[in-house]
Design a protein around this nucleic acid. Sequence first.
DNA 1: TATGAATGAGACTTCATTCAT
DNA 2: AATGAATGAAGTCTCATTCAT
Lengths: 211, 211, 211, 211
Amino acid sequence: MPKKTFNRLDCEKKERVIRAAIEEFQIHGFEKAKIEAIAKNAGVAKGSIYQYFDDKKDLFLYSVTWSLEYFMENIDRQTPLKDMDVYDYFLTGSRERFELIKKEPLLVAFSVDVNSGKYGSLTKETNDALNRIGEEYELKLIANGKKKGTVRADLDDRALLLFFQGVTEKFTMKIVEIARNFEFEPTDDLYCEMESYLKNMVSLLKNGMGR
Amino acid sequence: MPKKTFNRLDCEKKERVIRAAIEEFQIHGFEKAKIEAIAKNAGVAKGSIYQYFDDKKDLFLYSVTWSLEYFMENIDRQTPLKDMDVYDYFLTGSRERFELIKKEPLLVAFSVDVNSGKYGSLTKETNDALNRIGEEYELKLIANGKKKGTVRADLDDRALLLFFQGVTEKFTMKIVEIARNFEFEPTDDLYCEMESYLKNMVSLLKNGMGR
Amino acid sequence: MPKKTFNRLDCEKKERVIRAAIEEFQIHGFEKAKIEAIAKNAGVAKGSIYQYFDDKKDLFLYSVTWSLEYFMENIDRQTPLKDMDVYDYFLTGSRERFELIKKEPLLVAFSVDVNSGKYGSLTKETNDALNRIGEEYELKLIANGKKKGTVRADLDDRALLLFFQGVTEKFTMKIVEIARNFEFEPTDDLYCEMESYLKNMVSLLKNGMGR
Amino acid sequence: MPKKTFNRLDCEKKERVIRAAIEEFQIHGFEKAKIEAIAKNAGVAKGSIYQYFDDKKDLFLYSVTWSLEYFMENIDRQTPLKDMDVYDYFLTGSRERFELIKKEPLLVAFSVDVNSGKYGSLTKETNDALNRIGEEYELKLIANGKKKGTVRADLDDRALLLFFQGVTEKFTMKIVEIARNFEFEPTDDLYCEMESYLKNMVSLLKNGMGR
DNA sequence: TATGAATGAGACTTCATTCAT
DNA sequence: AATGAATGAAGTCTCATTCAT
């Protein structure tokens, strides 16, 4: 829903604006995020934001969409879910995934927060653009697992979804948190720590919902 | 941290104020919650709120504490965790637990939301009063499990905690959501649905982290 | 439509607020009238205005109502239109009327402007509170005249109303303009000029629509 | 006062711009009229407007002038006022006049509104370009009448002018309003209604100020 | 000359908090 | 202690005007 003015902008500027917005939203939450701060950080005038978007909510919603598209283009192209197994999904390309988290901790954190229902009052509207995609995607992973026999068949999908979401959200947040802490010093130790969390998660997931 | 003026109030009024606050916070989030609305719903004057609490944040923080204490007094006295096993913890007195969720869906939802990090900017402050209690409590459950041999020992406690929290939060929210839907018609069907979710959860938990 | 907060105010303050509003609206028009200026001139805080009224439009609409009521209470009690003839209506108590115009040129000008359709975009809403009263009143004067035989019966009331309104509005505005010019020097000469205009108006009215 | 850039434009484009401006001004009033909307409706870029005119006010003032000239060229050439009598002025060529009103209700309404003092804050500036012309013209009609003996000589011209303006403005607005209502269905009935209003007006005018 | 993106002053409105009664 | 009116800082959004292409 950005205005056409925004779409006509060169990519670099578009990205600057959205990243500034996401940062502000993550740090202060939707209500306390200031348009003026976003504009300043993006290096544009306050008024320009309103030439690009209808209002703050519009900017927020587009930021959500933008993040999602960003990941769609980056992660998931690398690990296409075709016949991907739920567990393999996380282990495959974990290094690349970590790289991404390390490179874009803000974006990852933003996406996870949006998905898990922080940004409360906007959740409904957010879901229109996002959950339908996210949840659908997750259900597909689960269905894949059941078909291949790697997911227990005695529980209904809704319960499995809750389980899957609960576990992966928490661990993702933890990993993002770790990634944040080494902004400029990506030691191997930390890779190990992250990988350890990831393996533990998969182990717990597999035990919990596997068969 | 309420002022002494608040403590001198009769319990009934204290409760009215806190419940009004919690409702407002849950519906609108911290930033958009209006002191005036809280006062009106509590049946007191706006100015009175400021005779009871320093400011909005103070009121919020106390609401958090109050909820916790409410549950401490109600649930956990019923199911003392002494030598309680992690899994038994949920199944034991599940009926009583459901009754409580049915009776106080708002309070439960509030507590879960606070715990899971919605109310973003306040999370840090909230944790001072709460997480130390909550997480401590959860770690104790996990430790109990390890001791009794019902929790796998090959994973460190931090990973287990994430797993445990992720799963239980998601399912609790789901169950609260169900409880909300039958405000006036607590059918047996719904008890069954809730119980089914709970059993599934325990099964997933047990498989995941048990041994 | 003021809020109850406004009604609870003491009359003196209410009047100060409304008069400040009317002055601002008359000088700058609705769009350019600044709430801050109104508040300052009324000696209250900007925020207070919003405790009294929903928004600028609400304040405007109430100002219209207030003026009307002011006149209802002042002029028309003096010259009750009972069996009043259209022409006598203006000549009777012309002195009192002039006094009023002299005393309240702003209010008179405001009322005339509102009535004659300046304040364009608000005209519709204004009429709900006002025209129904004003026009009804004028039609009654015309009807009285026809009954008594002092108004020609060969023209329909709608045409007579237009004629009557057109003439009286223009002359009223002129007289108000004169009244404005002697803010502090109410010479007898000026009374004469005003009275002259008034007599001319009545003469033209009488010739035009009389018989 | 348009810039020379504007004058170099081909007539068709000039007209498009001015008509778009007039429409916007009439619908929304001066303050709320948006340059962008005018540009869009005229089919030019927003920036172009500023190549043609100094600012919004300049555009407005020129629109006023343009309308006036439009009428000067269309009506008044048809009914040259040479030795025209005030009353004949309206009846002569009333059909043509109606045609014009029907064809250009917006322009007529705009002119009347400008003349009668809506567009409040601009009235002064407007008059510099316009009233001097309009009023002069009207005074000439009155003078003509007095000379020919068709206008009463016992009243001074200023009073007669007010009377004349008040009556003609109101009736014109009414007729324009009727013309607006049949945008696509110019029935004979409506011509009759308009003519009836016109005759009534002339009758009232003649009685009022004639002798 | 035409375009439309960029700018930022400015106004409305909200609401936590204070204060007088 | 209770009340609710008063306050004003702060933030969103608008749009006339400028400016670079």
